[in-house]
């Protein structure tokens, strides 16, 4: 039971981190990118390659993974978002990010192999630590630090305030002289770095696996929709709720119905509170 709780909190933290990355990109572009989970996957795979195959020290591997995630985020913006946002068709960004996510996943699959590979130890710790093992608390620490850092960033820095301005009204922000394209690129790079950091920290829990991206995209989105789109507090709460429900259901019913139960949670919340737990009710788009 305790093991199920700890596992639930740890996986929930990964989902919460993905939901935070979703939020970061959504704030400046109003786009929910399908590549979000793949950024996280990239962090895990790059970290495992750098530490396991290239035998680089941990900080270098971390820097490499984060840089790779940031690059992937930047590519998402340049390739899949920038040209598409200029047109007013709202479906196109879904298609372009889906295409990019597919390419990313398949490229990693061809390069890294389609088997999940173990992630090396990040910190020197005995394997006998049980539930105090680093693979359980590292994702939680990273997700909490990311949420706290984003909160400070939004409240204390000029760039954070620019993000907030763009999330309120991108046209008005542009009219006030904010370089909206550059700010959007910055937000995608930051989201990529955040996702990769989370994937790196959670690597020992999830393994370095190329198909992880799609699962994380879906589950991170469920966490986001449950918590409320655009709210970082909601992302944390939704992620934790999803992780706990998943692992307790696995504990009680066996692992076969995991996906069914997480979608059930999503439908339940959307029925009762369509805007999510911490979301703001949207106006009718007339």
């Amino acid at each position: 039971m305790l093991a199920a709780l700890v596992t639930g909190i740890a996986t929930g933290a990964v989902y919460a981190a993905v939901a935070l990355a979703y939020n970061l990109m959504f704030s400046t572009s109003k786009v929910l990118s399908v590549t979000t989970g793949h950024l996280c996957m990239l962090g895990g795979v790059l970290g495992a390659w750098a530490m396991g195959n290239a035998h680089l020290p941990m900080p270098v591997a971390l820097a490499l993974a984060v840089a790779g995630g940031g690059l992937a985020g930047w590519i998402t913006d340049v390739v899949a978002i920038r040209r598409v946002l200029a047109r007013s068709d709202e479906h196109l960004w879904l298609l372009s990010t889906l295409a990019l996510a597919t390419m990313l996943q398949q490229a990693v699959g061809l390069w890294w192999g389609t088997e999940p590979k173990p992630f090396p130890r990040l910190l020197a710790q005995d394997f006998g630590a049980g539930l105090g093992d680093q693979k359980y608390w590292l994702p939680v620490v990273v997700a909490a630090a990311a949420a706290l850092g984003l909160e400070l960033f939004y409240r204390r820095t000029l760039y954070g305030k620019l993000f907030l301005a763009m999330s309120e009204d991108a046209f008005a922000a542009r009219a006030r002289g904010i370089p909206t394209d550059r700010i959007r690129s910055l937000s995608y790079v930051m989201a990529g770095m955040l996702g990769a950091l989370a994937g790196f920290a959670a690597g020992q829990l999830t393994f370095a696996f190329f198909a992880l991206g799609l699962t994380l995209t879906l589950n991170g989105f469920i966490a986001l929709a449950v918590g409320g789109l655009g709210s970082n507090r909601g992302a944390l709460a939704g992620g934790l709720a999803l992780g706990l429900v998943n692992s307790l259901a696995t504990y009680g019913l066996g692992g076969e119905y995991q996906q069914t139960i997480s979608v059930g949670l999503l439908l339940l919340v959307l029925l009762l509170r369509p805007q999510g737990l911490f979301g703001v009710r949207a106006l009718r788009p007339v």
Partner: peptide
């Protein structure tokens, strides 16, 4: 052999160039 990568690339090109 490229499989999905090819489909993704094709989809991306169509969306960007010929919606």
């Amino acid at each position: 052999r490229l499989g999905n990568f090819f489909y993704g690339l094709l989809l991306l090109m169509v969306v960007l160039l010929l919606p």
